[in-house]
């Protein structure tokens, strides 16, 4: 008798309502989020003829990558018909150095502000962090003046400088918050071992900084790659960034709207960030939550 009550063989298995509801909700949400991307991908592989007859949303009848090729190196932007490809290269040439520059400088800032504390360090920190709250529009005109007085207007270098400087408050904040959790005693020990400011930074701090380094790189690269306002203000013609070129491509086609080319171009422009997230997304999350470094 006793064993019967314990095993409870009389009770019917319960229907797992909670997990079922959970997955249903998640499924619906995932569907809603993936829809626009799906439509873009599907449209980009349909021939223009099919889009015109069957409507802009639909399953491709025959799949073709012609639109991708056109978007990459044939589509006309203003009077130049070389596709997105030169501007894609511009964006890479801007985003990669600007990302690295702002990340490295942010790391040095965060290190100096936490481990080599000096009079006024906290005030300086607050001032730097205030930069996070400055809207781009507010610095547009001063930035334009600075660039022209430096002779960097309308050049790739000008945009690198602007993006690197504008990113500094964020990267500084990231690294400061990370380094604050590293025990000061490590720096003291290294000082007594004879290491100086830069050796401690490169040999002790940087090797333990990769989680926050990833966060900073992903954050900066995404921001810079997708940025439009500075791009459209400070680059024209051949030095345009990919976002500006994409905008021009979509807005300036003559005659029939080439939806498949527009979609392919948008996807191409979005691809680097997507790839970055695919490869380092999990480091990004891990880096955001990683705080202390256990010695």
């Amino acid at each position: 008798m006793a064993t019967d009550t314990i095993t409870g063989h009389a009770r019917a298995p319960k229907f797992p309502w909670v997990p079922v509801l959970l997955y249903l909700t998640l499924g619906v949400l995932a569907f809603i989020f993936i829809m626009p991307l799906a439509v873009m991908v599907l449209t980009s592989v349909r021939p223009l003829e099919e889009i015109r007859t069957a409507g802009i949303i639909g399953i491709p009848q025959h799949v073709t990558f012609d639109a991708w090729g056109t978007a990459w190196n044939e589509a006309c932007i203003a009077s130049v018909c070389e596709g997105l490809q030169p501007y894609f290269r511009n964006s890479l040439a801007i985003a990669v150095p600007a990302t690295l520059l702002s990340t490295i400088l942010g790391a040095v800032n965060g290190y100096a502000l936490t481990k080599f504390r000096f009079r006024g360090a906290d005030t300086l920190m607050v001032l730097i962090i205030l930069g996070c709250f400055l809207p781009l529009q507010a610095v547009l005109i001063p930035a334009a003046q600075t660039l022209s007085s430096l002779g960097l207007a309308n050049s790739v270098f000008g945009l690198i400088l602007i993006y690197a400087v504008y990113g500094l408050p964020f990267t500084t904040l990231f690294f400061r918050n990370y380094y604050v959790a590293v025990p000061d005693e490590i720096v003291r020990a290294a000082t007594m071992d004879g290491a100086g400011f830069w050796r401690i930074f490169t040999q002790i701090m940087l090797p333990i900084s990769w989680p926050i380094f990833m966060v900073s790189v992903v954050f900066q690269f995404t921001g810079i790659w997708n940025e439009f306002l500075f791009g459209v203000s400070f680059s024209t013609g051949a030095s345009q960034t990919v976002t500006v070129a994409l905008n021009n491509l979509v807005n300036t086609t003559f005659g029939v709207k080439q939806y498949n080319v527009d979609m392919a171009a948008s996807l191409i422009a979005a691809l680097p960030v997507l790839i970055l997230y695919l490869f380092v997304g999990r480091f990004f999350v891990r880096g955001l939550t990683a705080g202390s470094v256990k010695g």
Binding site: P183, E185, I186, R188, A189, A190, T191, M192, D193, G194, A195, Q203, I204, P207, I208, V293, K294, G295
Partner: peptide, 19 residues
């Protein structure tokens, strides 16, 4: 500090985590 010929052992060990 580095020229004093003094070595120190810390409460939190202060080992270099990556080495």
């Amino acid at each position: 500090s580095k020229d004093r010929d003094i070595a120190m052992v810390f409460q939190s060990y202060a080992l270099y985590p990556s080495m």
